[in-house]
Simulated assay, not measured.
Amino acid sequence: MACSHKNTIKVTNTSEDVCPDCVEQGSSWVHLRMCMICGYVGCCDSSPNKHARAHFEESHHPIIRSVEPGEEWRWCYIDELYMRP
């Protein structure tokens, strides 16, 4: 099965190395994820605030990627699919 939203990707990289929403709240995060539609960086579902998922639920931007060093995978929330670049 292939992701049906790959054609929506507009942003592939970021220099962000923090979750800005967590920093603003004085909270911590586990891993970072970047929205590949608008470039928003948020914390993962293992983090207390789950900002990346909250961004998806608000924006409906379907594809995120890991911005952790050495990780290149992508995830489509709608198709529930892991992808390699």
Rank of each mutant, 00 (worst) to 15 (best):
L81W: 06
G39Y: 04
L81D: 04
C3M: 09
C38Q: 08
L81S: 07
C44M: 04
V18E: 13
H61W: 05
G42R: 00
H60N: 12
I64F: 04
D79V: 07
D21Q: 08
P48D: 10
M36I: 06
G42Q: 03
E80I: 09
H5N: 07
R84C: 09
D79S: 08
G70I: 07
C44W: 05
I9N: 02
S66Y: 03
C44D: 15
S15A: 13
H61A: 01
C35Q: 03
K10P: 02
E72F: 15
E57S: 13
D45N: 11
H31L: 06
C43S: 11
I9E: 04
V41W: 01
Y82E: 08
H61P: 02
W29Y: 13
R74C: 08
H31N: 08
L32Q: 01
T8G: 04
I64W: 00
M36V: 05
A54E: 11
P48I: 05
E16H: 03
H5K: 08
H5W: 06
C76V: 09
E57G: 08
R33H: 00
M36H: 05
V30R: 11
L81V: 14
R53T: 12
W29H: 06
M83N: 06
E57P: 03
C76G: 03
H31T: 03
E68R: 02
C19A: 09
A2P: 06
P48Y: 07
P85K: 10
A52T: 02
C19D: 09
A54T: 10
T12Y: 14
D45R: 12
S47G: 14
E68Q: 07
T14W: 00
H60G: 04
C38G: 14
L32H: 00
E57D: 14
S4C: 11
V11M: 07
C19N: 01
V18G: 00
Q25S: 13
P20V: 05
A52F: 03
C22Q: 00
S15H: 12
S4E: 12
I78Q: 11
M83H: 07
K10T: 14
A54W: 06
S28K: 11
I37A: 08
A52Y: 00
D45K: 09
I78M: 09
W73Y: 15
G42L: 05
M36Y: 02
E58L: 10
H55K: 06
C38T: 12
W75F: 15
M34S: 04
V23G: 02
Y77M: 07
